[in-house]
Structures are given as C-alpha cells and as structure tokens.
Design a protein around this nucleic acid. Sequence first.
DNA 1: CGCCGTTTTGATAAAACTCAATCATCGTGG
DNA 2: CCACGATGATTGAGTTTTATCAAAACGGCG
Lengths: 216, 216
Amino acid sequence: MRHLSIFANLQPERLVNIPFRPIVTKYKAGEALYFQGATANALFTVRSGIVKITKSLADGRSHILYLQSKGSLLGWDSFVEETYSQNAIAVTDCEVCRLPEHELNELRRSDLELDNAILHRWVDSMRKAENKMLELSIKKGPEKLATLILDWCAPYPPGTWVDLPLTRGELGETLGLTVETISRFLADWRKRHLISEQHHQIRIDNIEALEEIARR
Amino acid sequence: MRHLSIFANLQPERLVNIPFRPIVTKYKAGEALYFQGATANALFTVRSGIVKITKSLADGRSHILYLQSKGSLLGWDSFVEETYSQNAIAVTDCEVCRLPEHELNELRRSDLELDNAILHRWVDSMRKAENKMLELSIKKGPEKLATLILDWCAPYPPGTWVDLPLTRGELGETLGLTVETISRFLADWRKRHLISEQHHQIRIDNIEALEEIARR
DNA sequence: CGCCGTTTTGATAAAACTCAATCATCGTGG
DNA sequence: CCACGATGATTGAGTTTTATCAAAACGGCG
C-alpha cells in the first residue's frame, strides 16, 4: 500500500517508480499517447523524455498547453472516465508509465490519502494553468519567450548547455507566436550574446539581460 | 448528510442552497471577497450576482481569469490551506455563501462521495482553463469577443436583452485586449446591426453573422 | 551527394496598442 | 431640478507588434 502514499506525498520522483501493475511503455518522438476525443481509459506518468499536451480547434489551429517531463501526470480525464480533451504527443523518445482506468479507480478506493493527494494535484495544476493564461494574455512576444527559456534552464546551473528538443514551431505553439517571430527573437538574442545555441541545446550567456526582458 | 451528495451531484443550483452552517454574505459591486496572497481560509459559492476572478503581475498588469455566477465555486486554494492565488471581486452586488476552511474539511472527512465530487470539479475547471488558454493564444480579437458575447447570451432565448454588467475594460481584461479595441469592435457591430446595446444590456440581432466571426 | 524539413531573413500587411481628445452617463450636492 | 464632476465610452491618428508570404540557407540522414 506504500505506493499510495507516494501519490499522496506528491513527490514526482517517487511517483515515477510505482512498483506495481502499471505498464511501462516506450514511445518514439512524434508518437501519440492519446488523442483528443478518444476514450480516456488510462492515466500516465512520464518516466523520461518530454511529452507535449496539445489542444486543437476544429479548423486545425492548435496550441501546446503543457510540456511534461519526468514525474508529470497526464490524462486526468481518465479520473472521470470520459474522453480525453487533449492530445499527448512524445516530443522526444520517452518512457511512460500507463495505469489503466479500472486499476486507477481500484487504487483510489483502497486508499483514503489518495484523494487528498489528487486534491493537491488539482490545486497545483490549476495554478499552473492560470499562470499560463496570465502569460498568454498579458505578456508580449519577447517576455513570453524569455520566460520560457529561463524556466526551462532554471533546474540547471547557470552557463550550462541545456537540451531544448523543441522546434521553433513548437516554441511558438506554446506561446501563441509564429515560427518566424520566435526565430527572429532568438537570432537577435544570439547576436547580442544573451544566449548561445548548438545542435539542439541552448545556453544562457547573460541571465540578467534575459530576466530584464522577461519581466517587462 | 444530504448536503454532501448535493456537492457530489455537481448540480450548481442545489449547491447554492446548502442548508447548514456556511454564512451568507452580501458584497457591493467593487468589493473584494479575497485578495491574492491572503490566507485561504474559506470556500465560497455564488448565490447571485457576478464575481470576477483576477490575477495580477507584480508590475500591476492584470487579467480576469473567470467570470463566476450563480453556482460557481470560488477559493479552492482553501482546499489545501495555503494562500489565495487570485483576487475575487464583486462585479455586481452579490450574495455569496462562505464556508470556513475548518468546516470545509470537516465536511470532506464526513463524506466519501465528496472527494469524488471534487474530482469532477477538478476535471471541469481544468477543461475550462485549457479552453481559455486555447482562446487566448489562437484566436484574434473579433473571434474572442464574439465568442464571449455568444457564450454570455447562450442561456437566453435569441433576441432577448441580456444584462452585461461589464465595462469595456473588464471585457478587455478577460480577453487580453484593450478598452479601445473592444469599443471599436462593438461600435462596428452595432453599426452593422449584429448587436444592440442599451443601458447595461446587450442583444444579439444577427446571431449567424456573429457566429461566423466567432469561428474564424 | 541530394533530399527534406527546419530555420533564417526580408518585405509587406494586418492587428492591436498608445496617446489624446471628445462625448455620454449617472449620481451628488447645491 | 439642474449643474458639476467623475467614470466610462468613443473616435482618430500614429506607432508598435506580430503575422503573412516568399525565398534562400542550413543541417541531418539515407
């Protein structure tokens, strides 16, 4: 029963290693874990790699809601047994832990703490979502992109090369900007030595300047 | 114990009438139920009127996340006993039902169904939030505003006058646009007889045309 | 080496913001 | 009851931001 308190403790690192029935699956970059509209029959946690959660309009325009990495929970539509309201697509090759809906509910029924943990997840994800709304509506291009880069690199020591396996298009789709706009901002910042790029890696060279851009 | 299944049934109309200890409070237009940063010590439901949920950046820029009306739950930060991450401000005079945090948790502990109900609320609000992100990032001005008006008037029969107690500024703040931009769109639509305005009411005169604008 | 998808760059247009001035509306107090 | 002031709405002109379209350069991979 320990695995439930793992859930409850809200520690992503441990969530990734639930030692029971869920199935570990590998996805190659570009493959989908699930699509918008499909029956929501499983909950996922990411063990390694990056998964993008997108949502599309009928006319084909789409947006990246979140970029999920190790420890993230995806497919919470399955909590209420309906259909997925988003797409989940592997950005890089990744390893994912899949917990079928019936086992999920079995699990929930067997542990009182679990619902409390889910509550915390709720509050967490709502805050994340609301912060993103704020960003999307208030900030302009450079602010958004600088914020994303700073957040992305935040877990690493300053001045290190960080993998950034996203295309310009994907960056644009998470910020509500076009490929060209992203490309121009990055080109400009490279010229001004705020950042460097190499293969699919990025390095922040002048964090103060970037923070300045990010905050207004 | 009936009041708990009221919660569980997720029927806003009944939630509004929980027959026990929560306190009914009245707020005048412009008054705040709570502010970002304050200790989250109570959950609210709206009984009448409109409450705007806003979030501000350090530099003063702010955004309206939601417009809540009868049946809405506000202040879910109180589920985890932290601080409110948003502001809640009465747009119109309103009546609100306030459930202190300790009673909320007492209530939760006493009913197994309740957590399931909260789960449904979670899924609901996440979907709402994600739809809004999509709107904010993908759609342009006229699309956003037309969508808002259509949604706002949707509960009423076509061609009826509907109260719209929001200023142009507030409309702008929910859509990520400025006062002037909103004013121009509305003026244009009035000229073209898509809508009419009167006091603080709006009427849709040509729903097809407005839907056309809303969808692309 | 050549192909394909991505990125860059430029030119132009569209969308939205800013600033500024004027106009309405409504509640208040004389 | 009317003038006043305050707040919100409108409108115009000019500017900034971002999108769009098009073409060229780059980079990895078979």
